[in-house]
Design a binder for these strands. Structure first.
Lengths: 207, 207
DNA sequence: GTCTATACTCCGATAGAC
DNA sequence: GTCTATCGGAGTATAGAC
């Protein structure tokens, strides 16, 4: 079997199945069957099941992080030393993640938000390496917006923002509990969700 | 081996190990070895590994939910038909969970917050059964506090609140990324975290 | 009823032939 | 690079001892 795209086919199949039933509940035999490749190809190309996951996650969060840095650079250059508007800052952190994951990579949000809560070998270190510098810059920029807040207050509130965002992303996959008076179409709308999250976190930082 | 407390010893061992390394990474053979019981005892008492998890979760969230309902009943009786103060309402939802999980059941927060993001057979239904009526009452009470907000806005913001809370609970187990100027002792303090979360969500609902 | 011993199937991983 | 064969360990089911 030729197939120089074996690696990509495995990645695609894994993304689909991980999102559907979760990482631990998906077997390599299911993935390789869907991708129409041999079982051993996974270990050849990725070393292990965890290695496959790691590459999948890296492909997803690196562009998000680069976009955040790009927008932050642009906004700070335009502000010319003045503190940014808090709402703009919150949006710069949230919008690239929500947009990338909801529009370009339809099935990654669930995978990613779950991973933040379940420990995996080597994955936390990778996330910390990629996201650490960004987080430091955001805390510093937030401190300039809200000088009356302590660094501890800003850090824990940034943590709340991440939690709210991850929970929103996972929301795509679950069934909503039906609640009287709530229109599901409104809640499912991507722009509605994004604006609500930005409003919630902006007010939360300042409150 | 006599041991009429076999069941409880399994539950204790499972809670410890699930919190330490996560549910999927913990084998029944490790649990039964730590509990000093036979492997098959798990399936006798709980039916399956998932059944064990389900009972563990149920034991944990039912008292939290009862306490929320109790406090909500008391507050609404005292208010005598008037809308509650938003901050009190937020605290009634958050405080029982944070207190129960941080003080009485030191190792459950991680387990619980992870489960909210990884699908497990039958577990979502159980959560929905237990939490559904409570959530409906909170949305209704919030709507009386903030009549200018639509039900969709209140529901999605309640979802953000849950996400922030779960992320905070899981925070106990992780190592914090070191950030210059942030005192880890302050961030680790239970009262500090609770008050920050209440402030963040109260402002977020209204913002 | 409780608990044990044991066997069964499936998993991820790997060695070695092609 | 790809494939087959195989390994130890996982969760599960059950027959039978107390």
């Amino acid at each position: 079997m030729p197939g120089p795209d074996t690696k990509q086919r495995i990645l695609d199949a894994a993304q689909t199945l991980f999102a559907e039933r979760g990482f631990p509940a998906t077997s390599l035999r299911e993935i390789t069957k869907l991708a129409d490749v041999n079982l051993a190809a996974v270990n050849y190309h990725f070393g292990s099941k965890d290695g496959l996951l790691k590459e999948l996650v890296n492909e997803c969060i690196e562009p998000i992080n680069k976009e955040r840095i790009r927008q932050l650079d642009a906004a700070e250059a335009e502000a010319g030393g003045q503190p940014l508007v808090l709402r703009d800052l919150v949006r710069i952190f949230i919008e690239p993640a929500v947009r990338e994951m909801c529009e370009e990579n339809g099935s990654m949000p669930c995978v990613l938000s779950r991973l933040h809560h379940e420990p995996h070998a080597g994955l936390e270190e990778m996330m910390a390496d990629i996201l650490g510098p960004t987080i430091s810059r955001f805390i510093a920029a937030t401190h300039r917006c809200l000088p009356h807040r302590t660094p501890e207050e800003l850090m824990i509130r940034g943590h709340f923002m991440v939690g709210a965002m991850l929970h929103l992303l996972d929301f795509n996959c679950e069934e909503l509990m039906p609640v009287p008076g709530v229109n599901k179409e409104v809640i499912s709308d991507y722009d509605f969700r994004l604006e609500q999250l930005v409003s919630f976190c902006t007010a939360g930082f300042d409150g």
